[in-house]
Amino acid sequence: MYGGGNTFEGIKTDSIATEDPTKLAEFEARIERGEKIEPADWMPQLYRKQLIRMIEQHAHSEIIGALPEGTWITRAPGFKRKMSLMAKVQDEVGHGQLLYSAAETLGKPREQMIEDLINGKSKYSNIVNYPTFTWADCCFISWLVDAGAIVNQLANAKGSYGPYCRALDRICAEESFHLKYGHHCVIYLASGTPKQRQMFQEALNRWWPPMMHFFGPSDKISAHTEVLMRWKVKMGTNDEMRNQFLDMYVPKIWELGFTIPDPKLKRVKRQVSGNTLNLIGKNLSA
């Protein structure tokens, strides 16, 4: 589980000026041609630093993210849910393990990353700090937070750093099962007793604001963002990721008869790649 918030703040791009211009040009040409950068290859310091930071935050988010859901393993209703949730949360810890390995290829030892997590130096997705009050909160995470993470991770899997992309390919394959599991849980709540429906509606009300924050603040395109996008470290703006999530999942939530606590959200016509599509958004003028 990983969102876009906080990842790219506050690193100065000045260091690029001190890089060897020939090597930098060759590096950029390789990325332009769609090649992957591998651990032993030359790379600018800023690229290395940003990737470590991003992959490490991603890994931490998986590990901390195991906690709010993990607390429901011992309470999951029935064998089917209990066994599925155990496997699902175990997957998340496994993703953390895989991502720490990917980050280690850039030179930071796992021990150091874990220490930075424990002493508060490293950040991670804020959404995993929210408590899960009911079983329905856990179902919300399994379905929708994982769905948001998949949107981000599918985009990042097309990035330029080989080990991260390969880790993400594996992670996305597993996450697609989580999504099916989470959706299945929510369908049962939606088609269950009034109490079950109410539980999910309340969870949705609680989780919607953090879910929107999950993708990060609205983007202001800076020189810094521009260089990271050129190097295929950042693969899309926060708003693009958020809109993609809304387009895909708001109709599914409505289909189940739930209300999203954002009255401005409605079906709109939006231009995507020259085509007018019926999408979700707040663009009332369309």
């Binding site: 195991a66 993990g70 810890v93």
Partner: peptide, 22 residues
């Protein structure tokens, strides 16, 4: 065993206890 999920002393042990729990 499943109470160790997310709490294991090492990632590998966390995963091992989760597997045995399943």
């Amino acid at each position: 065993n499943s109470e160790w999920t997310g709490m294991g002393p090492l990632l590998e042990e966390d995963i091992a206890f989760s597997s045995m729990a399943q």
